[in-house]
Amino acid sequence: MNNETDWDYLVPLLQKAFGETLWMVSISLLIAGVAGLALGLAVYVTRRGNFLENRIVFTVLNLLINTIRPIPFIIFVFAVGPLTMALVGRTIGIEAAIPPMAIMAAVAFARLVEQNLVALDPGVVEAARAMGASRWRIVWSVLIPEALGPLILAFTFLTIAVIDMSAVVGMIGAGGLGDFAIRHGYQRFNWEVVWATVAIIIVLVQLVQVLGNALARKALRR
């Protein structure tokens, strides 16, 4: 359509889209980080043989995670529409992107947290119990420090997955870089805009990965 890209017009829009992506990703990660950590811990401690063993709670939480996780995100966004409506009062726009992103990310993080905790030496938890550490102390003084490095890497992985999700929610008018690339690039056959946006996303993902790796390395040898 147009061979001349009007960057004077597009740059402010690109900046706005970048801001929207950062906002969506940050809020979703904040919620998913807290909720996913809690959910992952809950599944771990209620697992058979662990110190808050509870079959009902474990089964329900495990089923919840297993049910949500395999749903393709693009479908999940619409499937949770009623819940989104109830939570934020609308099903389109940037606010409407938060519930599906946060829920899907929380569930993914919960599984990552649980897997990293299961990989710990159970003898260490037994020892802490023998020493009379309370349940909360075991969580904060044993489980989290022991799994800190892998948990940071898991959160890094999650951040990148959430950046990926943020491109999909453009469909429901949430804006962001993915939406920008489609509306101003793809739909107008302007590949220059598409590739410029892709480059920005690649740099963003690389920055997250480098930062995550550095933090994990620091945690692994304090």
Binding site: G123, V124, A130, V142, P145, E146, L148
Partner: peptide
């Protein structure tokens, strides 16, 4: 009480 276990059971990530 104090406890010493067979494999120490020290926290591997802590100094």
């Amino acid at each position: 009480y104090g406890f010493v276990f067979q494999f120490g059971q020290l926290l591997s990530e802590l100094p």
